[in-house]
Amino acid sequence: MKTGTDSTVPCLDGLAAFGRKGMYWLRRAPCYGRQDVGLSPGGAMDLFAMLTGNIMLGNADDAEALEFLLPPEIEFLQPVYFILTGGHFRATLSRPGLPAQEVNHAAVAFAPAGATLTLGVRTRGLRGYLCARPCLTDTPDDEFLQRRRGRFAEKFSWFDPFGRIRVVEGPEYSWLREPELFTSQYWTVSRAASDMGIRLESDAELLVGDGNMISDAVADGTVQLTPKGPIVLLKHRQTVGGYPRIYNVISADVDLLAQFYPGQSLCFRKVSIADAVTAARQKCAQLEALRGRYSADH
């Protein structure tokens, strides 16, 4: 693709320009403190994926990253180190005067100024991330190019080994006539999915007894039971809601939900609050271990 000022937008602190075609957002870490006026913290939908990318590059945690559902054409405007995390997309780097190069997932790579990154077929997950930092030396540093995170499932262990999404009871859990119906079957992510939340479908119908639900606070991962079935709220959610909050996805697993695509099935496992806190601490510790490994900065 020929890029020019009318077809691309410079981003990531001027390191790259993105074509206008695609579905993508520039994301940072969540922005707190305004939920009392109805603004959710938002940020990267799969924050863990974005953070691992920034950490492996030695970037600040909240360095801007590109999040994409449909990746745009990407041109690097300066020599950069970059990394792809989150959902897997086949990636090819085209460099002026050099053969095209395949780019591995979750491994730091180098791109000279003028190189273009083409992301193709998605092979895993839903949302991909691109993190980048400038390379200030004439030739890339070998130490950087050897930074490989390894496979998510082998490198980390804070999630459920069987891929289930863990939930705890919500404030209106006791209203459910058959609460175990939620955790005893597979659900399908409907097409009505967005950054605000995903709707779940199944043959079984969850029923609540009579209760007078008054609009009240919701959180990331809150499972609301609407007349059309359950909705799981994601990071760009509203801050209050008027449907019974029957379950809540544990804080650690909300990032995982960002990688489920419409039509995919998922199943839930009920855990205790203590288990949820343990998972959050494990996740944090494993991120810190990664940070410890790559914190020697250049």
Partner: peptide, 22 residues
């Protein structure tokens, strides 16, 4: 705690995961 959300009948406090909610 990074966010306080008052509602009609309750006050919600959102905090960093990993802290014991109780």
């Amino acid at each position: 705690i990074h966010d306080l959300v008052p509602t009609y009948r309750a006050l919600a406090a959102h905090f960093e995961p990993g802290t014991d909610p109780w």
